[in-house]
Design a protein around this nucleic acid. Sequence first.
DNA 1: GTCTATATTTTGATAGAC
DNA 2: GTCTATCAAAATATAGAC
Lengths: 189, 189
Amino acid sequence: MKQETRKEEIVRVAAKLFKEKGYSAVSMRDLASAMGMRAASLYNHINSKQDILKEIIISIAELFTKGMNEILASDRSNIEKLKHIIELHVTISSQNANGMASLNNDWMHLEDQLVYYMELRHNYEDNFRAILKNGIESNEIRGSKPEIMLFSMLSTLRSLYLWIPKKEDLNPKELSATLNEILINGISK
Amino acid sequence: MKQETRKEEIVRVAAKLFKEKGYSAVSMRDLASAMGMRAASLYNHINSKQDILKEIIISIAELFTKGMNEILASDRSNIEKLKHIIELHVTISSQNANGMASLNNDWMHLEDQLVYYMELRHNYEDNFRAILKNGIESNEIRGSKPEIMLFSMLSTLRSLYLWIPKKEDLNPKELSATLNEILINGISK
DNA sequence: GTCTATATTTTGATAGAC
DNA sequence: GTCTATCAAAATATAGAC
């Protein structure tokens, strides 16, 4: 295990506070207090509050982009690709639930990196949609509403950060399998 | 149609701004500007910023509670009750998408009404969970993970506010039917 | 690397004229 | 019912001592 730098500690604690109250409602004094120091001292490690948000969101967004690119490059059925997307979300949400809150709820407060973030997000959704459409064409997936399927699946996967920390007994592999079953096959007998 | 009072107009415009940036990031000056007036003038119609948030969230939370109680009192199968829950979310989200954003993302900034809101929310989830469990017991619903089903369905239903405004061509009845199909029967062939 | 002190801006809200 | 003027508190951030 690499030692956590002071900056990394600040970003980690900030993500926790941002999850609880949102970026705008957390002051630098709140963050300093949670770190056991004065607000001014934070600035020896970070340039600005905005920098912290950027650090949290962009690193995760790039993880999703990297994961999606690997799934797209793989030689599997579309249903299997969906399964891997679910695993990608479960893995990232398990490892950084607090950061996922900022990515989901505070991305609009990004300044310099807003356009870049929106581009990554847009591309991710386009790739997800393409897999669903290909699955319908190849008769793996039923129905003719890929847009609503995309919305429904993404809503569940993007909310994992809220739910995973409350169910720490469930391991990621098992959760992925159950989610795959529910999202792909539904709940009806 | 009843004439909209000035106060109702302020609450409606505030909900729109809260959806875009969150409660904490919207100042009374922002709101006044969107209303075409000065911040001080707002206070002739509302008591505080907090009052606006309370107005938005509690009214919707009570709509959900009322809807759920009617569904519980009805004499239908559990699968049919789930269908009515989906319709309830689609209806409310269609009629007040902006308010749903505050309910989902800014409830933690409630002050006096926080405990009351959490109670309504908790009861709603308990009732939802009970329907899923009853459905499993009566063999209408497959699987043994009602908690994950609840999480998945609620995630999709609570995110509708983000998605409905972008698809104005789709009517609520049709959307409910499609969502019912996807959430109950899945997407796989 | 943390502190105190402080500059500057912005915030929610009130008083009182019109 | 809206305005101008204003208050007190809180915000982000910097300077400089230790």
